[in-house]
């Protein structure tokens, strides 16, 4: 473990708390893509299947449990508790276009052609693009509640912080993980536009609004 990865993981935790807080205080999941949240459940379940057969550490164990449980809880909030506040007509990204290529790529580019290994690879590729329905929705509506932008910023910071973590590991350890690195770079790249508006508007106290 190094500082970058720890901060990345904490940022990931924070993003989830911000999202749950947003839904519960505004009593609404307006502006949140159900599809993106459903993709995250898929990502976590596929990746953390290794909970059943591989022990890493107490930290690793509890984080995995937390990510699975909290993502399922968010789906529950959106699907049942605050269902009327979700508008499917603006959440229309075709997730097949993300899941399909992630399946195909994971069958071609993986470290080992084994079931759980391919599931892990699939989860990495899917996570890289899982934010797209959310960003697409943001683009469509052209605006976002400030708390929602904090959620997205924390989520983007999580992947961004993994990059110095990989650089650090490259120099201090003998192992590199090119699949995670390439997918992580793509994932962080998707946030660049968002970060630009976040830094130039939201952090200056303005509302998140995209130019018409």
């Amino acid at each position: 473990m190094n500082l970058f990865r720890l901060l990345g993981d904490l940022s990931h935790l924070a993003s989830i708390f911000i999202l749950i807080h947003k839904i519960q205080t505004t009593r609404s999941c307006r502006g949140i893509s159900f599809q993106t949240q459903a993709l995250y459940v898929t990502v976590f379940v596929a990746r953390y299947i290794d909970l059943f057969f591989r022990w890493i550490s107490l930290y690793n164990f509890f984080m995995k449990i937390f990510f699975i449980a909290s993502s399922v809880y968010i789906l529950y909030l959106m699907k049942y508790r605050y269902r009327p506040t979700h508008d499917p007509s603006i959440d229309t990204f075709k997730v097949e276009y993300l899941v399909g290529p992630a399946v195909v790529l994971s069958l071609i580019f993986n470290y080992k052609f084994e079931f759980t290994e391919i599931l892990w690879t699939f989860s990495i590729y899917l996570e890289a693009v899982a934010i797209l329905p959310q960003l697409f929705m943001l683009q469509r509506t052209g605006e976002a509640e400030t708390i929602t932008t904090h959620y997205l910023a924390a989520l983007g910071a999580y992947r961004a912080l993994y990059i110095p973590n990989w650089i650090y590991r490259y120099f201090t350890e003998d192992v590199v993980d090119p699949i995670a690195i390439v997918a992580g770079l793509v994932q962080t790249g998707l946030y660049l536009d968002f970060f630009y508006v976040y830094f130039t508007k939201v952090l200056q106290g303005q509302k998140f609004e995209l130019p018409a």
């Binding site: 470290y111 892990w120 192992v175 590199v176 993980d177 995670a180």
Partner: peptide, 10 residues
């Protein structure tokens, strides 16, 4: 270096 999955990462 060898290319391998970093199993301890989340």
């Amino acid at each position: 270096e060898k290319a391998e999955r970093a199993k301890d990462e989340l």
